[in-house]
Design a protein around this nucleic acid. Sequence first.
DNA 1: CTGAAAGCGCTTACAG
DNA 2: CTGAAAGCGCTTACAG
Lengths: 336, 336
Amino acid sequence: MARPTLTDVAARAGVSVTTVSRVLNDRGYLSDRVRADVGRAIDELGYRPNEVARSLLGRGTRVVGLIVPTVADPFFGEFAAAVEAGLADRGYRTLLCDSLRSVERETASLELLLAHQVAGIITSTHNDGVSLYRTAGLPIVALDRKLGEGIPDVRSDNVAGAAAATAMLADAGYRRILFITPRDDVRSARRSAHREVLAVRGLPEAVLAYGFSSSLDERRTLIEQTLDATSYDAAFCTDDVSALMAVEWARSRGIRVPDEFGVVGYDGSAAVRHLVPTLTTVLQPVEQLAAECVRLLVRRIEEPEAELPAETVLPVLLRRGSTVREHATVEQQPAR
Amino acid sequence: MARPTLTDVAARAGVSVTTVSRVLNDRGYLSDRVRADVGRAIDELGYRPNEVARSLLGRGTRVVGLIVPTVADPFFGEFAAAVEAGLADRGYRTLLCDSLRSVERETASLELLLAHQVAGIITSTHNDGVSLYRTAGLPIVALDRKLGEGIPDVRSDNVAGAAAATAMLADAGYRRILFITPRDDVRSARRSAHREVLAVRGLPEAVLAYGFSSSLDERRTLIEQTLDATSYDAAFCTDDVSALMAVEWARSRGIRVPDEFGVVGYDGSAAVRHLVPTLTTVLQPVEQLAAECVRLLVRRIEEPEAELPAETVLPVLLRRGSTVREHATVEQQPAR
DNA sequence: CTGAAAGCGCTTACAG
DNA sequence: CTGAAAGCGCTTACAG
């Protein structure tokens, strides 16, 4: 038996579809009797309004598109969970798109979201050059990315976070720090801040950038190929997964962390905080980032003319674990 | 400027909307000239078909609802990522619902999915008593849950996994094993299999079940309150996060793992495998589980009459790390 | 207080 | 090979 429609309910209740619609939306004057009759018919039929039909009537859909590299990553998984919860609280559904695989796929995802008439989009794109964002013509909020005019950028303080991490390593006496990042962009805020602190301290720069589309296995391999204790005595990684791979690399070779090798990560997702509380890392306020993305997007959807901040920068927290030593050693550990 | 519609394209190309629709769907006979004219009009206008309107026409929507406790959990994050990718490959979008918070919320999510006319649902519900699943009247596939007649259950081999884990602990000489699980169900397959192996070995049963809706912090607290080295010498946890909390508990108290305390986890998500390769755990084939859920659901959507297996059980793998010792010690370690 | 009619953006028989 | 008309399930002025 096909799902009952408004017409079925109207027939059963002995009223017009207009009346049923009014009961559903509680608008206009209704006699109690009609209200009761319609309510009963709805219950008996197990009727559920068709949101698809509803959204065809100008009011737009209450669905928001969420684009993340992949919810399999702890940080983005937690971000996605918080976004979904925030949107649900405001009556919006979340259409999920993982963009990890490529620019083409991200563009295709975007096309699909637009075709599905989403009310807005929250994106943490990692593919540059998706120009569609600028011409899509609907509310968009970006996580940590400048997508263009009129697209608010919500992020945490990358400059402060990276600078603090690098300074902490330098203060502890590490001298040859490898900067490990999935992001292949020389001018990223974290990389620039890191470089600046290195310059001030007179330390050399070394970078391993393996690209966002690389798999975890590829990343691990690259880290193992690049790291060696004669060239480096520390790693600053722009994500915790890489940082833990660096820790693992050291352990597997009998290199003591933090005495001989220091590691700082980035993100500080709840999973990592609970799974590996020993990691020293820069905590991003993922819940607040998500909440702010949701708040701004919903605001723009519901008040299209509202003035939104072009940038929102939330503070980070440097969380001390045990993968960086506390004080500079008087003498460098001998290279192994 | 509002988004262009079929009518706009038709006007611009100087043909009827019927013709534009036919070009879009490539059906029926079309002269090359008309085809070209319409194509040009579409490009010039930046026209994109409205999927919402399309799906109103009987053909149904190409959207699938995905219900997981939370994508913030590594296992479900990876499951969700794999489901999203599989569905995308087959032309379906993923509407994400986290159900963690409560039965009410899960029921509400389901209602919403139905209202949005999803073509089907993949659910890994953890709330019992959501009866709506049985009466929803649309294709549903469940991950590791028997929801009712006609709802395929895709899972990995819980009995083999739990039995192997418990046997491994017993073989290594651990005698007082605490079973730690978020799931509050005495008759779960893992718990039953665990109990059975204990019985055969003549070992006592002890369980800490903290409920799915507990937060990570609450779980950690419960673990710390319950575990003590005089009562237990091992923990078998039905998820890796709990297992790592147990490892952390031991470390923080100076109890040596695995010599004095053994730990086995469950899930073996890529994140955990990479972040904490030392953990001994039961690997669920998360990618295959997701692929199978997608395959069955799409099959049922596209061939409603197809006969689907009521149960699909995929094999698990016991992965040896270093949180369980290799052989039974001749003498038990003294309790601390 | 309630209903008939038009219309949202599309597709699908049915004519021509 | 192309178009006019009906209709998907709903809402919204407009009458009455």
